[in-house]
Design a protein around this nucleic acid. Structure first.
Length: 473
RNA sequence: GACCCCGUCGUCUAGCCUGGCCAAGGACGCGACCCUUUCAAGGUCGAGAUCGCGGGUUCGAAUCCCGCCGGGGUCACCA
């Protein structure tokens, strides 16, 4: 059999986990789970100036919220690049000793001058290899460069892109270790992936152009290449890279918008990957069906409308108890009192799940259950508080006071009887009641609502409304 | 600028490898109708893609080949 699959997700804690990163994490995680392999989380924090502990925590929080659990990684030591500096150093020294890398004393200023000169000649600057044969002594201040073959080409065999060829004339002897002794990103990645025995590198397409440099480094080190898969990027509606300017892009921001993790995973998976015509995938579905073969090549535009639709699908099917639990913090944030009985909240959720696409919307719609209407929607009252509203409220109050059963069918029967008796349509009495109870002309089925609220509360709200009609609003 | 990648309804996509079943299917969104105590949800129907453009190969091309155009990415002692 083939060796076990080992993949990794290497975020750098210089910002919040955004949807692009989350999707990369998801594909890696799915690939690992599908093949019963290992999913490694590695923190790329070599850029100390921009990396923060705070972002690291937020990153882990976002991954945990999504349920993308890692088999190896923090808090186990050794999975942060800053903890692996001697590993990079050892590899660098070996390359130097074997003559695959060399010391370079060209200063950034010198290089900058050359670069500008090349630009002036409308040429692309590449390091000319000045120090390649110079034998710069260790005593001199120097950077370390990889000596790449001057001739030939490097082929990147990519699962998604196919065979991509890069001529060595397009590459140059890039820097492995800076003058200050710190290793560069491309070098760290290679050393990390090699030492962590990563078998498949699944990452954003923006890394494709860096891949030949890395391949050359693998070869210099004498290590076998992993399998590469460069997945399409996620774009904003204007087809540019997603950024803060495009509104919410971080995973945690979507959580705070009332998106469920199931929906986040589901939507992200469908961006660039497909399984026939299927749109809704549970975590298990995803693990079962995910494969690199059906990852597309074209970049995808992030569509919030479709995302909300997916979220709605999950709101419609998840257990009410679970939704009630998820909803609680949103009620709190909306300044609504927390109901004492979680079972009661679950009943409320049951009436709302078909009409709320996000938990934020659901909290808004749940408001009248938890707090009496402070005002009545003028459009609704203008339409339904025409003549005899006061008398009708009085009649409803009287009948409901005498009403024993408060289950929806019984209430509907009562209302139908009253409407027929008054020569009215059911809708007339229903809307009158709805305004009294919800303060507006739209709500879940009114008899369900009345049943959940209970007779005392319903009567109280009807009396308040009746008084408002009497007071001429 | 050089190099690399990408290009099917507004958007996500199926199909492309293994040409004909595609006068291009599904989904979101949009419109209409049905259902209906409101709003939703659901159902039905509809508008919406000459498969980026132009050549070629072939009896036949979204699918194969060439050129072009458009978009994106990478070119740092950033990651």
């Amino acid at each position: 059999m083939s060796e076990p699959v080992r993949v990794r997700f290497p975020p750098s804690p210089t910002g919040h986990l955004h949807v692009g990163g989350a999707r990369t994490a998801l594909f890696n995680w799915l690939f690992a789970r599908h093949h019963a392999g290992v999913y490694v989380l590695r923190i790329e924090d070599t850029d100390r100036s921009r990396s923060t502990e705070e972002y690291t925590h937020a990153l882990l929080e976002a991954l945990r919220w999504l349920g993308l659990d890692w088999d190896e990684g923090p808090p186990t030591p050794g999975y942060r690049q800053t903890e692996r500096l001697d590993v990079y150093r050892a590899h660098a020294e070996r390359l130097l000793a074997e003559g695959k890398a060399y010391r370079c004393r060209c200063t950034p200023e010198t290089l900058e001058t050359l670069r500008r000169a090349a630009e002036a000649r409308k040429e692309t600057f590449r390091y000319p290899g000045t120090c390649r044969e110079a034998g710069v002594p260790a005593s001199e201040s120097h950077a370390l460069r990889l000596a790449i073959p001057r001739e030939g080409e490097t082929v990147v065999d990519d699962v998604v892109r196919g065979r991509v060829v890069f001529g060595h004339a397009e590459l140059d002897d890039w820097i492995l270790v800076r003058t200050d002794g710190t290793p560069t990103y491309n070098f760290c990645v290679v050393v990390d992936d090699v030492t962590m025995k990563i078998t498949h590198v699944i990452r954003g397409n923006d890394h494709l152009s860096n891949t030949p440099k890395q391949v050359l480094c693998y070869q210099a080190l004498g290590y076998p290449l992993p399998i590469f898969a460069h997945i399409p990027m996620i774009l904003a509606a204007d087809k540019t890279r997603l950024s803060k300017r495009h509104g919410a892009t971080s995973v945690l921001a979507f959580r705070d918008m009332g998106i469920l993790p199931e929906a986040m995973l589901n939507y992200l998976a469908r961006l660039g990957w497909s399984h026939g015509d299927q749109e809704i995938f549970s975590r298990e579905d995803l693990i079962r069906h995910f494969d690199l073969a059906h990852v597309g090549a074209a970049d995808a535009v992030f569509d919030l409308e479709k995302f909300k639709w997916v979220n709605h699908q999950w709101i419609k099917t998840l257990p009410a108890e679970r939704l009630a639990r998820e909803l609680a913090p949103f009620l709190d944030r909306a300044g609504l009192p927390a109901p004492a009985d979680p079972g009661w909240l679950a009943r409320v959720v049951e009436t709302l799940r078909e009409r709320a696409r996000t938990l934020v919307e659901m909290a808004e719609q749940a408001a009248f259950f938890l707090r009496r209407p402070a005002a009545y929607d003028p459009q609704a009252t203008a339409k339904f508080w025409k003549e005899s509203a006061a008398e009708r409220y009085a009649l409803l109050i009287k009948r409901l006071e005498a009403q024993e059963a408060m289950d929806p069918p019984a209430l509907e029967a009562l209302y139908r009887f009253l409407a027929a008796d008054l020569g009215l349509k059911l809708v007339d009495l229903a809307q009158l009641t709805r305004i009294a109870i919800a303060g507006k002309a739209a709500s879940p089925p009114i008899f369900e609502v009345m049943s959940i609220l209970g007779r005392a509360e319903v009567l109280a709200r009807l009396r308040t409304a009746a008084a408002a009609v009497g007071a001429g609003r």
